[in-house]
Design a protein around this nucleic acid. Structure first.
Length: 431
RNA sequence: GGAGGGGUUCCCGAGUGGCCAAAGGGAUCAGACUGUAAAUCUGACGCGAAAGCUUCGGUGGUUCGAAUCCACCCCCCUCCA
């Protein structure tokens, strides 16, 4: 009646709700169980919002259970309405199937496929949904759902009740499709537990009901809390947008920086959510941070652990190398190889020929992606917040691009490290 | 099919003929303070170095002048049939 795993998860704050709470602990202790969590292809990469469930699958696997990562090739074509304010734009089948392939690979790095008895597996719900005809769906699946019950679900309520929005029949059906996944996985893999974010509660309980009706089996559901930030802003977004798991979309350096920059008030909680460090260990860090004046250690540990999980040891050291040289090292000390390496490692960079210089710095830095508009560059220049190889520039320099990138000041005769504000760096390789 | 309500700059949301590139809030960016924090304060926040140019669902029209008025169209919501 006491599952050590559930206790551990509870201590980490990773459990929001459990369906079948009284029996779940005993069920998990009774043997190796199969569980799943779904990931819908809504982009060509997952973002850090999916990290908690991914790591959750791993936590269960480490505890001896068998994780299935479901990639929603079918559900991704429909769109989950849960707690969404608006109807979503449908993506074409081609696009979605391309994303499915990418997500399959991505999801695979977090779970172990060579674990013997409890080896993980990746499944795609398109495999059992694509071939189903409408009448079978309506008669065999739809018949088990009460619309009265469905419209009571919190996840769609706001769409139904809120003035100025609505929900299409397509999205309304999403819940049924996801429920069917659970029943199908129960039948095919003896899967008895579904994990998901707290927004998935309605879909999960739908699946539990359907599995009982279709297969006569009792199955369980567990949701994780929504990740919140102490300041109330949305987790996982920054100035530069979403933090993706794909290194091509968010470099390991940017990823590392994201975690390094998280608020003190969030850091210890995030350590519990996003790392495999012991709770006791995390508490110890929190205590020692509290006793010490100045900068806490938590963010550094967090950044290190999560970056290693997502980008591996190589990605982590690249991120740390860049961070080290930009924020604590002196850039003059960087060798030519170091600079080339930084660029390789994901430091934003661009190559430009001297003859092709734009007329203004605002143009040049905007083109390089350092700022969203010339206005921002203008503002920064006006406050001496732009430096080239540590030399501050002013608004007067805006039209003097050549002088700003004086050959005599180049690092190794071609590199210029431009900084805008405190944190934004860009390496220009100028010929 | 009928009746009504609505589509404003990233988001929310004012604005109902000139004073509107469009209040206010949020988000975001920069500065000060700091720890590459938080809180706070300051500035910016359609594009453009500037002159200037382009916005208020779309297309036309009225007017010296429109986000605001008119016509038609598209989309969304609510209720009725």
């Amino acid at each position: 009646m006491s599952s050590a795993l559930l206790e551990e998860l509870r201590a980490r704050g990773l459990i929001f709700q459990i369906a079948g709470e009284d029996e779940l602990a005993g069920w998990l202790d009774g043997g190796s169980r199969t569980l799943y969590c779904g990931f819908d292809p809504t982009a060509d990469s997952l973002h850090i919002g999916s990290l908690v469930p991914l790591l959750m699958l791993r936590r269960f696997q480490l505890a001896g259970h068998r994780p299935l990562a479901l990639v929603g090739g079918a559900t991704g074509l429909i769109g989950d309405p849960s707690f969404k304010a608006q109807e979503r734009q449908l993506n074409t089948a081609d696009v979605v199937s391309g994303w499915v392939e990418k997500l399959k690979r991505q999801v695979s790095q977090f779970i172990d496929f060579e674990a013997g008895e409890n080896s993980a597996e990746v499944v795609n719900n398109l495999d059992w949904v694509a071939g189903m005809d409408v009448l079978t769906f309506l008669r065999d699946v739809g018949k088990h759902f009460s619309v009265n019950a469905m419209i009571q679900k919190e996840s769609v309520k706001q769409r139904i009740e809120r003035e100025g929005s609505g929900i299409s029949y397509t999205e309304f059906t999403y819940m049924i499709l996801q429920s069917f996944d659970f029943a199908e996985l129960n039948k095919r893999y003896d899967c008895t537990l579904q994990l998901g974010g707290s927004d998935q509660w309605g879909n999960i309980t739908g699946g539990i009901d359907l599995t009982r009706r279709l297969n006569g089996n009792q199955v369980f559901g567990l949701t994780m809390p929504l990740i919140t930030k102490a300041d109330g802003t949305k987790f996982g977004k920054t100035e530069s947008g979403t933090i993706w798991l794909d290194a091509k979309k968010t470099s390991p350096y940017a990823f590392y920086q994201f975690w390094l920059g998280c608020a003190d008030a969030d850091a210890y909680r995030f350590l519990k959510y996003f790392t495999f460090l012991d709770v006791a260990e995390i508490d110890a860090i929190e205590r020692s941070d509290a006793e010490r004046q100045g900068r806490p250690e938590a963010q550094a540990v967090l950044a290190q652990e999560v970056t290693r999980l997502v980008h591996g040891e190589a990605g982590l050291s690249a991120a740390q190398r860049i961070t080290e040289s930009l924020f604590s090292g002196s850039i003059e000390a960087l060798s030519k190889d170091d600079l080339a390496q930084l660029r390789q490692d994901g430091l934003p960079a661009s190559s430009i020929v001297r003859a092709a210089f734009p007329d203004t710095l605002t143009q040049m830095l905007t083109d390089a992606g350092m700022a969203a508009s010339g206005k921002q560059v203008k503002d920064a220049l006006g406050r001496n917040a732009v430096t080239v190889n540590n030399r501050p520039l002013g608004w007067d320099d805006n039209a003097r691009v050549d002088a700003c990138f004086d050959p005599g000041e180049a690092l190794h005769s071609r590199y210029y490290l431009v900084r805008l504000g405190k944190k934004k760096y860009h390496l220009f390789d100028i010929e």
